[in-house]
Simulated assay, not measured.
Amino acid sequence: MSAIMKLNKWANAHTNIGFDMLRICLGAFLFYKGVDFMAHTELIIGVLNPVDTFGWTMIIVHYLTMVHLFGGLLIVIGLLTRPAILLQVPILFSAVLLNFVGEMVPENFIQALIALLLSLFFLVYGSGKHSVDYTLKMRM
Rank of each mutant, 00 (worst) to 15 (best):
P83W: 01
P83I: 02
A84E: 02
A84P: 06
A84R: 05
I85T: 00
I85A: 09
L87P: 08
Q88V: 00
V89W: 09
P90S: 04
I91K: 09
I91S: 12
L92F: 02
L92M: 08
F93Y: 13
F93R: 00
A95T: 09
A95D: 11
V96R: 02
L97V: 05
L97Y: 15
L98Q: 12
N99C: 08
N99Q: 03
N99A: 00
F100Y: 15
V101H: 09
G102F: 07
G102D: 14
E103N: 08
V105T: 13
V105Y: 12
P106G: 05
N108H: 15
N108L: 12
F109A: 02
F109W: 14
F109Q: 05
Q111T: 07
Q111N: 11
Q111S: 08
Q111C: 09
Q111G: 00
A112L: 02
A112K: 07
A112F: 10
L113W: 03
I114A: 10
A115H: 03
L116E: 00
L116A: 06
L116Q: 09
L118K: 01
L118C: 10
L120C: 05
F121D: 08
F122I: 09
L123G: 00
V124H: 10
Y125E: 01
Y125C: 04
Y125V: 01
G126N: 04
G126H: 10
G126F: 05
G126Q: 04
S127R: 01
S127F: 10
S131Q: 05
V132L: 14
D133M: 03
D133K: 06
L136V: 13
L136F: 13
